[in-house]
Design a protein around this nucleic acid. Sequence first.
DNA 1: AGCCAGGCCTGCC
DNA 2: GGCAGGCATGGC
Length: 226
Amino acid sequence: MKVKDLIEKLRKIYGKHVDWWPKYSDNHTFEIAIGAILTQQTKWENVERVIKKMIELEILDPKKIVSIEKRKLENIIKPCGFCSVKANRLKDFSSFILKNLQSDLKKLFELKADEARKLLLKINGIGKETADDILLYAGDMKTIPVDYYTKRFFKRIGITDASGYETIRKMILDEINNVDDLKEFHALIVEHSKRVCRQEPLCEKCGLKKFCKHYQLNRKSKKVYT
DNA sequence: AGCCAGGCCTGCC
DNA sequence: GGCAGGCATGGC
């Protein structure tokens, strides 16, 4: 199975997923980056609420985020959980923009993708997934986030045993060059993964912790496992 | 009621 | 260099 074929297969099941990352304001770039941080270990519905609130309060701007009192910011982002750490992360990210990008996140995307990625990864609270979310969806740069879903998906369909982030990322980037396809591929994997079982089944007969022929017969749930 | 969500950092081995 | 533990809230 080629990585490239997977997009077509998933599209046939779930439909096209262009413009998957939601946008609520005119300031897409910064908004998407803020959303990427807020959605860490958090459902999107909660992020959506918070972003809309931030738009209403007119604080969706790095300068405003830096200057707002931390307690106030925590209160605003509370629905996303981890409000103390996330308030710090939003502030650290915003002050990075003020200090290094002349207050404009778009400047980051004028750099080479690798350079931009390294800069993001130095910021407290921005790991590989969040960095790749920002680069791909806010900056239209060639990369792809490899989340838990992606690792599990690739493992289950037998594309790779490797669970290493960079291994899987490079494997995908080697085959998919188009940025819109990368955006859609990640979107499709997420949409697919939300619909399948979180735990791999444990077969009652052979005890294998993987999808085996016995399990197909025994399973009660209608959900699938790939 | 308990489990889970589109992670990341720290500290321990 | 991998891995548990902590961070917190809302929804089913």
